[in-house]
Amino acid sequence: MNVKVFILALSTVAVGLVELIIGGILPTIADDLNISLSSAGQLITIFALIYAVSGPVLLVLTSKMERKKLYLLSLSVFFIGNIMTYFSPNFTFMMIARVITAMSTALIVVLSLTIAAKVVSPAHRAKALGLIYMGISSSLVMGVPLGILISDKFGWRIIFLGIAILSIGSFVLISIFLERLSGENTVPLSQQLKAVSSLKIGSAHLATMFMLAGHYTLYAYFTPFLETELQLNSSWISICYLLFGIAAVSGGAFGGALSDSMGAQKSIIVVIFSFAVVLFLLPFTTFSLIVFIPIMMIWAALSWSLAPPQQSYLIQTDPATSDIQQSFNNSALQVGISIGSGFGGIVLSQTGTVAHTSWFGGVLIIVSLGCAVFSLTRKTTARENNRATIALQNQMND
């Protein structure tokens, strides 16, 4: 594999940490900044929301810029955002830092994907993109448990200083090994919005959004859940996050295999329905760690199992706009994280019991299931059929 792809993947590990790691150290941040746990949860909410909105917008605004220069500029902004987080004197300052890092992260991830696709031959393109996604997923497996242990020993701020230093390493490697790449025309936002305007496709994106919203209603507050419901210390919490991460990454493979065996449409229904059942059951398993951990790992695996069948479904429905659909599905995912962490904060502040977030999250999963059923039962429009025909003809010509 091209060494440039490995360097891009390493960059995505660093930027992936910024979004995911904060969930494991939420109580520590809340205590240090003298804010409530639900307020601290909004640091996840604002990051995901800014990430979702800024990704497509910044890509269009910077379409003419030379890619290497833009990548290095994004890494510089990312570095500044993490240094600001390290020195944050209060909640407002840290919130501003999260906005800055979210915008730069969104651009770095999309640039990593697009550049990786360009620097390898078409035969190796899928592997290259898979390696980039592996960089993001590995930040989930390693980042959160490692972050908890570091925070416990040295304080939470040192984590963001470490991420800033990692970004310097990425900056140096990109400067040395990546060649200059010219900008290119991107699809205007108005045209992107038209691509998701049908009820069939729009409701599919809503299914993704509500699925992640239901997941993060609990997951954003998973550390206090483990502390209060199972009375676990930081070491055991780290172990739980590590097991969760391993199961979540394997869930992507499970979702792909399920989609291949029973088809994308049936897989979507099975995954979302099963996810709702697990979230409703989870609070009843906290009487024993032996019972809780297997159910937790099923929850984790299902949380990443929707992506493969959902992506296949979107490509099958409208192959001519598949790139745009993947972009919007990623934005829907981030909006879901934002909604879920915000909603979970409201549930926590109103009920005072973190276990209730699981049940309220389950309700959002049921909404997701309704959106999925609605999408799957809509007929493909004439416009989408025309696009599919054109795409098939283009593939035959190639």
Results as ranks from 00 to 15, higher is better:
Ser167Lys: 10
Ser167Asp: 07
Ser167Glu: 12
Ser167Pro: 14
Ile168Lys: 10
Gly169Phe: 11
Gly169Cys: 13
Gly169Arg: 06
Ser170Glu: 10
Phe171Met: 13
Val172Cys: 15
Leu173Tyr: 02
Leu173Asp: 04
Leu173Met: 13
Ile174Ser: 10
Ile174Gly: 06
Ile174Val: 15
Ser175Arg: 15
Ser175Asn: 12
Ser175Tyr: 10
Ser175Lys: 14
Ile176Val: 15
Leu178Phe: 11
Glu179Ala: 04
Glu179Thr: 14
Glu179Tyr: 11
Arg180Asn: 15
Arg180Asp: 13
Leu181Gly: 07
Leu181Thr: 09
Leu181Phe: 00
Ser182Ile: 04
Ser182Ala: 14
Ser182Trp: 03
Gly183Val: 11
Gly183Leu: 11
Asn185Met: 09
Asn185Ala: 15
Asn185Gly: 11
Thr186Ser: 15
Thr186Gly: 14
Val187Tyr: 09
Pro188Phe: 08
Leu189Val: 00
Leu189Phe: 11
Leu189Arg: 03
Ser190Gln: 13
Gln191Glu: 15
Leu193Phe: 02
Leu193Ser: 03
Lys194Ala: 05
Lys194Met: 01
Ala195Asp: 02
Val196Asn: 00
Val196Thr: 01
Val196Lys: 03
Ser197His: 05
Ser197Ile: 06
Ser198Pro: 06
Leu199Pro: 01
Lys200Phe: 03
Lys200Cys: 02
Ile201Val: 04
Ile201Trp: 06
Ser203Asp: 03
Ala204Glu: 01
His205Thr: 05
His205Cys: 04
Leu206Val: 06
Leu206Pro: 13
Leu206Met: 13
Leu206Phe: 00
Ala207Trp: 03
Ala207Gly: 05
Ala207Ile: 06
Ala207Glu: 05
Thr208Ser: 12
Thr208His: 00
Met209Ala: 02
Met209Leu: 04
Phe210Ala: 08
Phe210Tyr: 05
Leu212Gln: 13
Leu212Cys: 09
Ala213Ile: 01
Tyr216Leu: 02
Tyr216His: 04
Thr217Met: 06
Thr217Gln: 03
Thr217Trp: 03
Thr217His: 02
Leu218Asn: 07
Tyr219Glu: 10
Ala220Gln: 06
Ala220Arg: 01
Ala220Pro: 02
Tyr221Arg: 10
Tyr221Thr: 08
Tyr221Gly: 09
Tyr221Asn: 15
Phe222Asn: 15
Phe222Ala: 14
Phe222Met: 12
Phe222Pro: 10
Thr223Pro: 12
Pro224Ala: 05
Phe225Ile: 08
Leu226Ala: 08
Glu229Lys: 07
Leu230Val: 02
Leu230Pro: 14
Gln231Gly: 07
Gln231Asp: 12
Leu232His: 11
Leu232Phe: 07
Asn233His: 07
Asn233Arg: 11
Ser234Gln: 14
Ser238Arg: 13
Ser238His: 08
Ile239Ser: 06
Ile239His: 10
Cys240Ala: 12
Cys240Asn: 10
Tyr241Thr: 00
Tyr241His: 09
Leu242Val: 07
Leu242Phe: 00
Phe244Gly: 00
Phe244Trp: 05
Gly245Leu: 02
Gly245Tyr: 03
Gly245Asn: 05
Ile246Leu: 08
Ile246His: 09
Ala247Lys: 12
Ala248Thr: 10
Ala248Leu: 13
Ala248Lys: 09
Val249Thr: 13
Ser250Leu: 06
Gly252Pro: 08
Gly255Asn: 13
Gly255Cys: 07
Gly255Thr: 10
